[in-house]
Amino acid sequence: MSFVVGLIAIGALALIFGLILGFAAIKFKVESDPIVDQIDEILPQTQCGQCGYPGCRPYAEAIANGDEINKCPPGGETTIKKLADLMGVEAKPLDAAHGEESVKKVAIIREDECIGCTKCIQACPVDAILGAAKQMHTVIEHECTGCDLCVEPCPVDCIDMVEVEAKPETWQWNLDSVKQNIHKADTIPVKLVE
């Protein structure tokens, strides 16, 4: 008899706690971004494809499905660190097979050499190149992510990737760079003191 009472009591308890848990799961549900969105948020959105996927979102989906987090050269170390935090895995060095982290660059078209073939326009993942067939093209610098994808298709090789110039307001207080900075303006009558 006592065995049956015990059984019923435990069963009832299980039922009650189950209900409470179930209720809590609905009532206190934490709305969070799906993991892919969170990863996508971290990626630099250059859409450069150096990771081997056609754009940042596909790579985000791949990471969510278990791909490595160190395939993004434009994001570099900071991105890997953030991804590691999010995914709860160990941060590792950038996979050199996908390229190296380098200074920020922007594409510039040497406009007098452009033949107006529109191939770069088709290649640009963020529509940052302006132009039409047989018209000279130009890059909207502000929108360019420096992904490099327009350089290859150009038949006359008139696109250069140039480093983004440091400006006083984006300068990172690297005092060692000062000595080089002062030589950046070409026509300065610099009065030097021995």
Binding site: A166, K167, P168, L175
Partner: peptide, 16 residues
């Protein structure tokens, strides 16, 4: 006389 890049009065020494 000119309108050109000159080093700025800024800690960076960068031209403007």
């Amino acid at each position: 006389k000119a309108i050109e890049q000159r080093p700025m009065s800024h800690a960076s020494g960068l031209p403007e």
